[in-house]
């Protein structure tokens, strides 16, 4: 999964409990590691992340 217009700030990476998110140039979310907790959605200062079926 990718996130459009991402600033690469790393906030989502820091709160992800499973290490599913990496930023090399852009954010990439590994769907296999993601447990859909929704913490990254909550954290993003620009509200850019949408996780399908998240518990938020």
């Amino acid at each position: 999964m990718e996130v459009e217009n991402c600033y690469g700030c790393g906030g989502c990476v820091a709160v992800c409990p499973t290490g599913a998110i990496t930023i090399i140039e852009e954010v990439e979310i590994d769907a296999e590691k993601c447990v859909k907790c929704g913490r990254c959605e909550l954290m993003c200062p620009a509200g850019l992340i949408r996780i399908d079926g998240s518990q938020r």
């Binding site: 600033y7 700030c9 790393g10 906030g11 820091a14 954290m43 200062p45 620009a46």
Partner: peptide, 8 residues
């Protein structure tokens, strides 16, 4: 300039 960030 626009910047976004997070602080622990």
């Amino acid at each position: 300039e626009v910047n976004v960030g997070s602080v622990p």
